[in-house]
Nucleic acid binder design. Sequence first.
DNA 1: AGCCAACCATACTGGCGCGTATGGTAACCG
DNA 2: CGGTTACCATACGCGCCAGTATGGTTGGCT
Lengths: 236, 236
Amino acid sequence: MSVSPAILQSQPGVFEVLCLGGMARCFVLQKQPVVGHTAKMPASSSKLESRNRLSAGDWECAALETLAESGVGAVAVEALARRLGVTKGSFYWHFATREALIQAALDRWERDAENEVLAPIERVTDPRERVRELIRQVSHRRLSHAVFAALLKSVDLALIRPVVERVSQRRIAFVTEAFRQAGFDRTAAANRARLAFSAYVGFIQLAQVGQPRMTHDEFEAYIRDFIEVLIPHAGQ
Amino acid sequence: MSVSPAILQSQPGVFEVLCLGGMARCFVLQKQPVVGHTAKMPASSSKLESRNRLSAGDWECAALETLAESGVGAVAVEALARRLGVTKGSFYWHFATREALIQAALDRWERDAENEVLAPIERVTDPRERVRELIRQVSHRRLSHAVFAALLKSVDLALIRPVVERVSQRRIAFVTEAFRQAGFDRTAAANRARLAFSAYVGFIQLAQVGQPRMTHDEFEAYIRDFIEVLIPHAGQ
DNA sequence: AGCCAACCATACTGGCGCGTATGGTAACCG
DNA sequence: CGGTTACCATACGCGCCAGTATGGTTGGCT
């Protein structure tokens, strides 16, 4: 799933619940140039061997992992330093403050998560089938949701709120447009989008409590009903 | 709405965002004997005048208010002490630890919130109309949701998780049963209950971000669509 | 070779929040 | 009226964590 096993074991960090670390790496480790930092990596050695020194990207990566696993509060510089095998002294060379790190990590996540979700949908042409495909897609990218779920919990922080706002707004708008193209009028589309997105958000929250305690098959059946309720085959 | 103004102004505490304080008071201030504590209030003066000394219940009350307003993290003993106009010395006479307070406050909330939601529904006899009434009821008790929303955010804490688990489990079971009685088969009822409850949970989360930014009328329309989607008049 | 810059360690300050210790005051009781 | 009980203040210790100061090490460039 878009993350090579080699990368997965490149850093001997702790691998916790549900392989969430893999997801964060999936988001981050595709080291796009990232403007200023690490600009002139000598193009010789891959990141595998010469990774005793860290870059800002490594810190952002670790931040996203920890964020997905244990929430915003767990993104603490000393904890991250331990995780990366260094000390705070390292951190404060790359970032001015803890908030700066979270900012950077979130910026990255926001950019990458966007395309990852939307791109595979845009290929489906039939509008109604597209809505269904969207729901199916989202429902199975469970790794991508951990970050969003963690963010939701810290939405009262001034640092997090705008991110959640933007992301939610964009996603709701996208789903609304999908429903519109599927033939619903403006308000119906908006309401179904709200309903669908709310149900999505609620589900990833409740899933952490293990509340909708269901097997894989039950989950699939749930998604089928979910789709059928929101955009039934029968009607039209 | 189900909370007498008299109670609302019985304690001149700070009244913050959205009158949330009123809700907590609504839950708490109906001072049921509460086992051991405050057993022999001399039955003379109401809580209005002789409230210079505090009881355990007062602390639980303030805890729930703060919880609803600012989350579990804000339920700090020194902060609560300031809010109540006393110091920590008072607190540690009533409770052994901070967690004990949260426990007590949550126990209380769990008991009271249960009946408050379910009781008014049970009067409706027609099964399908009962589901609709349930949705309507819940959708308008917005004050009661702040606590639950706050709890969801701290669900990783060992103190909170079991509460959220119990409450979610019970509520989902209740809604499932309602759908069953409305004529849906077992799995359909379960899935619609999951969907409805997830949508509810997601909505109260997103509402805090002001994301489904909608007017009162839009909200009403949303609830109508919500009902129509989940338990349509047309079908059967 | 030697220097500079990137990167990291160690040690410290300071705030915040929980918990403890202990002494004080008001009401009530015998 | 002296004493116990319920309630509260003041002061302290302690651990956690963000941020600072400063000095050390390594690698590439000239």
